[in-house]
Amino acid sequence: MTASDQTDQADRTARTARADAPAPEGTATPDDHALRDAIALDRRPDRPSAVSSTLTFAWRALLKIKHVPEQLFDVTVTPVIFTLMFTYLFGGALAGSTEAYLQYLLPGILVQTVLFTTVYTGYTMNTDITKGVFDRFRSLPIWRPAPIVGALLGDTVRYTIASVVTIALGLLLGFRPDGGVVGVVLAVLLLLVFAFALSWIFTILGLVLRSPNAVMGVSMMVLMPLTFASNIFVDPTTMPDVLQGFVDVNPVSHLTTAARGLMSGTAGVDDVTWALVAAVVLTAVLAPITMRLYRNRS
C-alpha cells in the first residue's frame, strides 16, 4: 500500500515536471485519482442481449424527442394542414359535400401522414453518420442491427403521435368511423407495421446519400408518387388506364383500402393481408441490404 502510494507520488511528480503548462486557476484539470477510480473495473459486465441493446437505442430516440420537441412540429402540423385543405378546398367538388369527403379522406390522410413521417428515419440516420455518432456505435460489441432497429422502434412513437393528431382532428371535424375504437386502433397498428417496413427504404437512402438534406429530397421524390398516385385522395376510376394500373399495384393503395375498411368496420381480409405481405416483403428484402451497407460503410 505504502509502496504503491509512493509510486503514485513519483508518477505524479514526474508528470507534473513533464507538463509544460500548469493549468490556470479554476480550470477543470482531471484529477488523476478521480480518473483512476472512475475507470477502475473489478468485473466486466456481461454483454447485453440483442433486445436490451435495441431498447437502449429506442430510449435514445425518445430522449431526442424530449430534448428537441421541435421535430414534432412537422409531424403535428402537416396532417392538420392537409386535412383542412383537402376537406374544405376540394371536398365539396370531389364528393358533393365536405362531410362525405371527410369520411373517405381521413383514413387516407392518416396513411399519408404516417408515411411522410418515415422520412425522418433516414434523415436522423444520415445525421448520425455525418456527425460521427455511428462510428462510435459501430465500434461497440453489440448486436449489429440494434442501432437501426432501435431507431425504427423509437420512430413508432412519432407515428403514433401523428396518428393521434390526425384522428383527433378528424373527429372534431365530423369524421365518424363505423368500425369504432377497435377498428381505428387496428388501422393504426397496421399502419405502424407498414411504416416500420417502409422505413428500411429510408435507412438505405440514409446510408447511401451524402447529406441529411439529400436524404430528405430523394425521400420526398419516392413518397410523392407513392402517396398521390394512390386512392388516398380520390377514387381512381376517373384516372387514365396507365395510372390506374400503377394505383392498383401500389402497396399504399392497398394499405389505404385496408385502413378505410378497418375504420369503417368493413375490412376485407384481402387488403389487410396484402398490406401485411407487402410489409414482410419490404423488410425481408430491404433490411438485409441496409445491414450490408451498414457493415461495409467506409
Binding site: 466486466r44 435514445r60 430522449l63 431526442k64 448520425d128 456527425k131 460521427g132 455518432v133 462510435r136 465500434s139
Partner: peptide
C-alpha cells in the same frame, strides 16, 4: 470489447 475509440470529430450525440 477491449478497444475504445475517439474519432477526429466528437462522436457523441449532441442532442443528448
Amino acid at each position: 470489447t477491449c478497444v475504445g475509440l475517439t474519432g477526429q470529430y466528437a462522436s457523441v450525440d449532441e442532442d443528448l
